[in-house]
Design a binder for these strands. Sequence first.
DNA 1: TCTAATTTTGTATTCATTACAAGTTTATCA
DNA 2: TGATAAACTTGTAATGAATACAAAATTAGA
Lengths: 148, 148
Amino acid sequence: MNTKLDWGEMMDLNIPSFLRNQGIKASYQRIRIYEYLMNNRTHPTVAEIYNALITDIPSLSKTTVYNTLNLFVEKELVEEVTIEGSEMRYDIKDPEGHGHFKCTQCHRIFDVPVQIEKIFTDELSEFHVQAQFVHFVGICPDCLKKNS
Amino acid sequence: MNTKLDWGEMMDLNIPSFLRNQGIKASYQRIRIYEYLMNNRTHPTVAEIYNALITDIPSLSKTTVYNTLNLFVEKELVEEVTIEGSEMRYDIKDPEGHGHFKCTQCHRIFDVPVQIEKIFTDELSEFHVQAQFVHFVGICPDCLKKNS
DNA sequence: TCTAATTTTGTATTCATTACAAGTTTATCA
DNA sequence: TGATAAACTTGTAATGAATACAAAATTAGA
Ligand SMILES: [Mn+2]
Ligand SMILES: [Mn+2]
Ligand SMILES: [Zn+2]
Ligand SMILES: [Zn+2]
């Protein structure tokens, strides 16, 4: 039998120690917010995270959600998804990196694999690239099926 | 001698008729806002456009800048650049398409060529892609030089 | 346990964007 | 040309995401 855990499994099992490893105190609120992002890969907004957790954590403040997400972004555990003009969206940062697809019809945001290396050009060699983001906009397979 | 004008030259010469061709009434404000975007490829915010034009057009309202840009986006003359979380930025839409690089030090946003085709993957064939955006974040050549 | 540091919370504030209605300009037609 | 409607612009009010700030609560260290 295989006892080796992958990245996702490891953090699922022990979020508190993962957070501590990243130099973050594992408060109850932080654990629950991180856990929510792990289990809901839907690129939620602050409001969505808050509304999902408020029943379980009646004392939760929206400010805490903002503070926590900003901390996670700073520590590079979480990525801001700026695919919308209105509200910021958040996503667990995965080491490989992936792109996003926004469906104009159902408004869902999908993960899509992207070959990041291939988009680099000669011109970019002069720049020091620290992060890259690829966004697509269009109609998702589900909505295409419904339309036809 | 060559009398053929390219896309940029054509619109430089006659913005009003270009706008009318796109089904947009060529009001003075609209012409000046489009002209500003043509001459300032710096991905300006609404506030920047407004502040640049207010001395020439003392009656100008910020609402008009918003209305006009939203109209241009709708008619696909202009593209929203959602590289910042705070303010929307605007860019003349060019047929070939290009990526953007945000320098974390001088906060400028640069155009960078991108081979869009190369980022498509098999997974995406199920989606109907209408637009794609590539953003980089890092340090620009100027700032790299200053740092060293 | 006592004390300091950290975290959470609630409220007030900021500010980009939109909503709306009134004023102004432009187009249409007799 | 002059009247009338349509389109556009403007100013102000409203919305709402995000931050600032200070007090309350929790945690860590001595
Ligand atoms: Mn994602
Ligand atoms: Mn550009
Ligand atoms: Zn869809
Ligand atoms: Zn720079």
